[in-house]
Simulated scan of single mutants.
Amino acid sequence: MMIRSLLIAAALTTTPALAQDAGTPATPGTATTDAGVKPAPKPGEMAKAALKDSQGKDVGTVTFEQAPTGVLVKGTLMNLPAGEHAIHIHETGKCEAPDFKTAGGHFNPTKKKHGVLSPKGKHDGDLPNLHVPADGKVQFDFFAHGLKVKSMFDKDGSAVVVHATKDDYHTDPAGDAGGRIACGLAEK
């Protein structure tokens, strides 16, 4: 399972993140070091979401840490049904049970189609599926290429949502991932 998670994570990142960038000019307005490398993110460019299920029971925590080319997403979740489950960042910082529809659609400021397998995708909020064992506990580390922590804090915030089934990585708008079974607001 670990290899499958690593392969999916690799598929969700783009090749430039894996290769050394030699000679690419800096984006205008972006500071770089003398070596031409973007500096590390400032301390405090982090966010955290405490997830609860539809009965208000704790499900765990997801953290977001800014990196130079995206965001490191880490989580420790529990009390989930065994099997594959989609996990996404949603566009609205509101988690009203029982269906969590108040979290809106996927976080998608660039107006792309859903899914890493879509030629017109992916949403910034699309993340790899979770593989939850029989004990209902899962830990994960994902890299969300291109995502910025600060972008998650627009006027209505954002939320993290776990879905009832897996994301197929291409069906627009939500990967045919089923209902929403847990939700948590992204907070600084």
Score class of each variant (00 low, 15 high):
residue 93 G to T: 01
residue 13 T to R: 06
residue 136 G to E: 02
residue 120 K to Y: 11
residue 111 K to W: 03
residue 102 T to G: 01
residue 128 P to W: 03
residue 163 H to L: 06
residue 159 A to V: 06
residue 148 K to C: 05
residue 47 A to N: 12
residue 64 F to D: 07
residue 164 A to Y: 04
residue 114 H to P: 05
residue 186 A to T: 13
residue 167 D to S: 05
residue 180 R to E: 11
residue 3 I to K: 15
residue 79 N to Q: 08
residue 125 G to H: 06
residue 142 F to W: 15
residue 76 T to E: 15
residue 62 V to P: 07
residue 54 S to L: 02
residue 51 L to E: 08
residue 90 H to E: 11
residue 79 N to K: 11
residue 172 D to K: 02
residue 19 A to M: 09
residue 126 D to K: 00
residue 104 G to V: 03
residue 96 E to L: 07
residue 118 S to N: 15
residue 132 V to R: 05
residue 2 M to T: 12
residue 123 H to P: 12
residue 149 V to E: 13
residue 178 G to I: 02
residue 126 D to F: 02
residue 188 K to A: 07
residue 187 E to F: 01
residue 1 M to V: 10
residue 101 K to V: 04
residue 182 A to N: 04
residue 76 T to H: 11
residue 110 T to D: 15
residue 5 S to D: 13
residue 105 G to I: 04
residue 184 G to N: 04
residue 148 K to L: 12
residue 20 Q to I: 14
residue 4 R to V: 07
residue 37 V to A: 12
residue 4 R to A: 14
residue 21 D to I: 10
residue 22 A to Y: 10
residue 114 H to R: 03
residue 128 P to D: 12
residue 167 D to Q: 02
residue 169 Y to E: 14
residue 17 A to I: 11
residue 82 A to I: 00
residue 45 E to H: 13
residue 178 G to E: 11
residue 170 H to S: 11
residue 66 Q to I: 08
residue 14 T to D: 13
residue 83 G to H: 03
residue 77 L to T: 01
residue 176 D to R: 04
residue 81 P to N: 08
residue 148 K to D: 14
residue 33 T to I: 03
residue 25 P to M: 13
residue 147 L to N: 11
residue 65 E to Y: 04
residue 71 V to R: 05
residue 83 G to L: 05
residue 147 L to R: 07
residue 84 E to V: 01
residue 163 H to T: 04
residue 64 F to T: 05
residue 17 A to D: 12
residue 96 E to I: 13
residue 116 V to T: 08
